[in-house]
Design a binder for these strands. Sequence first.
DNA 1: CGACATCTTTGACGGCGGTCAAGTTTCACA
DNA 2: TGTGAAACTTGACCGCCGTCAAAGATGTCG
Lengths: 238, 238
Amino acid sequence: MVTAPIMSACETCVVRNRAICSALDTQEINALNQLGRRRAVTAGEPLIWEDDDSLLVANVIEGVLKLTTSTEDGREQIVGVAYPSDFIGRPFGHTTKASVVALTDARVCVFARSDFDRFAKEHPELEHKLLERTLAELDRTRSWMMLLGRKTAAEKIATFLLEMSDRLSDNVGCQVFPGPRPRFTLPFSRQQVADVLGLTIETVSRQFTRLKSEGVIELPSRREVEIIDRAALVGQAG
Amino acid sequence: MVTAPIMSACETCVVRNRAICSALDTQEINALNQLGRRRAVTAGEPLIWEDDDSLLVANVIEGVLKLTTSTEDGREQIVGVAYPSDFIGRPFGHTTKASVVALTDARVCVFARSDFDRFAKEHPELEHKLLERTLAELDRTRSWMMLLGRKTAAEKIATFLLEMSDRLSDNVGCQVFPGPRPRFTLPFSRQQVADVLGLTIETVSRQFTRLKSEGVIELPSRREVEIIDRAALVGQAG
DNA sequence: CGACATCTTTGACGGCGGTCAAGTTTCACA
DNA sequence: TGTGAAACTTGACCGCCGTCAAAGATGTCG
């Protein structure tokens, strides 16, 4: 569903100071605001299709989205996860190679790619923020390659749970109770965890069960995880 | 003919028009030239160490380099490969998470990271080029995640050979004879191919011999590959 | 030219994790 | 609260690919 742009919506935006928009002053952000619109995406709903013309870019305001690529025969790999204040889409390019689908209900701030490209080129500070963000994302993606190429299933799961506990400890909308026993709600189903880690759903399930029986984690419900023994996870993360 | 009093090395640089430097005019590039210096790196020699303070950035002039991350117990994953005109290093950051090692004898144009950062911030056109390059690298890295997480050994090898035949068909210093039967010299040992694909050296070797016995490729020497049946490779690439 | 080190290939074997097939739990919705 | 569908777990089996070991090929340097 689509809502009409709200005057000065940016000024009260919860990610105003963390997203790339933080590079802009009030006047500039009002100009950018004219180009974009807010959009709600419900869990499971796609925002961008793989191999589409790259028509949209967006900032995540609230919620979690997945970036995926697939083979023709249906195998899927999650190649990125976007949290609030993250930028999604492919500026300065012609096609995207990844689909973007909401994992939770989400709100995003979308722009036509061509509008955004033009605006960005005129605002070097914005491009600089985007560059820093892209470089950081590349770092993160590369360390994930290490995991996919060289880690065992047990190491993958341990690494994943530690990353989740870090990533979700901010205001991501997935209830977190920080402290010695971090507890959080996964934005992923078991199948999606498998798609992140390059495993099957059965292997993910077995590893979760093993960690639970070893007393390393607790699983209060399907989506909830409580880390009982963080040191053990670190030890198993490879 | 009289030589100009100050003739920067950049003006005759073979990657002058492909590297990020192409964003700069003659005056600007002379200024950048003052900050950098050329350096030869012999095959096997490291340029940047994993977890080092990010002190260097560089442009590749000639040769091929690998970016790797390792686990404590010595498993290695190649997370990127840099060809002529590619940019390496981590600007605007404090540490790098990847080592950079030359695969072939190489020549690079290195800068102190702090010098480069300062210069870049003053030259938006340069930052824009760097952004486009980083976005493209992120795309490539993500499609490699698909390979690492979801493809079989046979598919990995086929994909790898096709990518090599594309990448090396430019002036990379690895002799190439283009045409219906592309033939090239790999800049990788078998172990390094394994480190790119998340496999073992034995599996790589077995896949190579299989493709040879199927008549899909020819292996004139250890490092040389001739593609006999490109369509078969495409069919096996998943 | 010969000897040694290194890289690569090949073989035998086993285990990790994938596949297939039930069960079981959870949840949405009546 | 009952009911069905979807998500998850568990078990049995097996195949791909990793491990271990040894032989073969290639290159270097005396």
